[in-house]
Design a binder for these strands. Structure first.
Lengths: 174, 174, 174, 174
DNA sequence: CATGAATGAGAGTTCATTCAT
DNA sequence: GATGAATGAACTCTCATTCAT
C-alpha cells in the first residue's frame, strides 16, 4: 500500500514483519509469491462486500447505492490501497488464466451486479434493456475512477456526480 | 512501450537513441525528465485525433464512432503503447497540477466529447440530459477498458459490445 | 556424489537422510565432519577391493589386471563417485597428518601394489627393477586419469590403451 | 591462487583489483567469465614453457629433464598456483569442446612430448616402443602428482624419485 | 533425544548517475 | 558540447548454524 509493488523491497517487508530475511524465504520463494498471497488474502476479505451490511428488506436501489458508496470509499483512500501495487504487479506478471484473481474478482462483481440489476428491473426500480452490459459498464467506470484516482486524481464531488449519473441511467430518481 | 517505465534502463535508452550516457544528461537531468518529455511529445501528436479525418459533412454520430474506433485500436495494441509506462510513471511521480499532462489530456477529451454530445442532442441524433456527465462516463469507461487491457485482458468482441452500449445509451439506433 | 562437496547443502542432506536439521547437528558439528565420516565409511568399504574376488590360483598378472579393471570402472562412472567431492573437500581442508584418510588409502594401495609387483617379479611374470617406484607410478597414472575424467574427460578406449601400456611396461605380453 | 574458484568472492576480486563492483561488470558478466579469462591468459603465458630456455645444442634428454624440472617447480608451489581453482572451475563448468582450454593444453603437451621422445629414440638416447602412450603416461603422472600435491601432499624427494623413474623407463642412465 | 522455524551475514548482480577527458 | 568508463549503494536471494520447544 505504501510503496506499490516495484518500489517495495525485501528490506521493507522484513522490517515491517519483524522477521529475518531468511525467515521470509521459508514461506515465500520470491517477491512475486509474497504479493500473490497478499492479493489472495485481500481478495478473500473483500468478497463479502456485497453480502455484508445488507438488510433483509433492502431494495435493489439500496444495495446498489451501498455498493457504489463502498467502492467510492475504497477508491478515495488512494494510498492505503493495494490498487497501485496490483496494477504494477499485473503489468509485469501476465498470469495463467487459472489463477487470475483480478479477473475472477472483476467477473464475479459483474455477475452479482447483473443479478442485482435484473432484480431491480423486475421490481420496476430500474429501467435497463441489457443488464449484462450495464453491469459491465458500471464496473468499467469504477475501474476508470480507480486508475484516475491513482494518476490524475479525483475529487469526492466529481466521483459522487459520476456515480449518481450511473443511477440515473438506470432510471433511478434522485 | 517495450518495457514500461520502471523496467526500462538507461542502457536501453542510450542504445536506442545512439547517444552517449553523458550526452543524455546534457538534455535531461533524470529518467523522470526523459519520460516527461516523451509524454509531452506523445500528447502533442495525439491532440489531433479529433480534428484529423473528420469530413465537413460528418454527423455527431459519425465523429463519435470514429473516436471510439480510434480509442479501441489504441487500447487493443496493448504492448505498443505508452499506457503502461504512463501509469507506472504517475504511480511514483505525483506531479504538480501545472504540468499534469495526463489530466489536461483527459479534461480536454471530456470537453470535446461534451461539445460533440451537445451538437448531437441539438441535431436530435442523441438523447442526453447531462452531456458533461455522459462525456465523463465515456472517458471513464475507456480508461477502465485501457487498464483492463493491460491487466486482466480484453477481447475485441467485448470491447465492441461495450462501446455499442455507450452509443445505445445516447439513443443511437444500431 | 550428485553435487560434490561445495554445492551440496544442509537441505539436501537432511532431506536425503530424512532427519531434522537439528538432529544432524547432534552427531556432527559441521558439514566438514559429515563429509569426513562419509569419507571414512567409503574408505572402509573399498579397502577390500584387493582381497575380494581373488581366487587362490590367481597369478600376479591376473590380480593386477583385475585391480586396473576395477579402477577403470570407478573412474569411468564419473558422476556416481565421491572423487569430485573428495578433491573439493581436501582443497579447503588441509587435515592433520593423523586423520588423513586419503593419504592412508593411497599409501596402502602403493604398498599392496608393490608387494604384487614383487610377487610377479619372483614368478617371472613381470620385469621390474624398482617395484616401489613402479607401484607409485601406477597409482599416479590412475590419479591422473581420475582427475582427467572429472575435468577434460576421458574415453573408455584411451583409458584401456593407457592401462595396457602400464602392463607392457612391466613386461607383460598382450 | 589464494582461495581457489569457489571460495573467492566478488569482494576479494574488486579489492585486489582496486576497482568498483560495477566496474568489474563492465568487462565480465559473471564470475565464470572472469575465471575463464584468467585461465586463457595463464594458458598463453605457459605455452612457451617448452620453447623458452632451450639451447641450440640441447639433447632430447636435456629438454625432457628441463621440462620435468619446470613441472616440478610448478607443482611444488602448491598455493601460488591456479591448479586448485582450475579443477574447481571444471568441476562445475563442463565446457563445450571448442573452448576447452585445459584439454587443449594437455593434448598440446602430449604432442610435443611425443615428438621429443621420437627425437630421442632416433638419436638413440631413449628406448621406447610406443612414444604416444609414453608421452601420455608422463602427462598423467604429472597430473597425478599435481592433484596429490593439492590434496595429500608430496615431498620434493618423492617427486624427484618419481620423475627419475620416468627417465629410467625411457632408458636414460642416471 | 529430536525438532524445524528462525537467523543474519554475505553472496552475485544491477543501474542511475558522475566526471575526467 | 560530447563521451563512456567508473562508481557504489542497493537489490534479491542463499544457507550453515542455532535454540526454544
Amino acid at each position: 500500500m505504501e510503496k506499490g509493488f516495484k518500489r517495495v523491497t525485501m528490506k521493507d517487508i522484513v522490517e515491517a514483519c519483524d522477521i529475518s530475511r531468511g525467515g521470509l524465504y521459508l514461506y515465500f520463494n520470491s517477491t512475486e509469491e509474497i504479493f500473490m498471497e497478499v492479493l489472495r488474502m485481500e481478495s478473500e476479505e473483500t468478497d463479502d462486500v456485497f453480502s455484508g451490511n445488507v438488510k433483509e428488506d433492502s431494495t435493489a436501489t439500496d444495495i446498489l447505492m451501498l455498493f457504489l458508496k463502498e467502492q467510492k470509499k475504497e477508491l478515495m483512500r488512494k494510498k492505503d490501497t493495494l490498487t497501485q501495487a496490483t496494477y504494477e504487479f499485473y503489468f509485469e506478471n501476465k498470469l495463467s488464466k487459472k489463477d487470475d484473481i483480478l479477473k475472477k474478482q472483476f467477473e464475479s462483481a459483474v455477475f452479482v451486479l447483473r443479478k442485482l440489476i435484473e432484480t431491480g428491473v423486475e421490481s420496476e426500480e430500474f429501467y435497463c434493456e441489457d443488464p449484462e452490459r450495464a453491469a459491465r459498464n458500471i464496473m468499467l467506470v469504477l475501474e476508470g475512477l480507480k486508475i484516475s484516482a491513482q494518476t490524475i486524481g479525483v475529487t469526492s464531488e466529481s466521483v459522487d456526480k459520476q456515480l449518481l449519473y450511473i443511477l440515473k441511467s438506470l432510471g433511478v430518481e434522485d
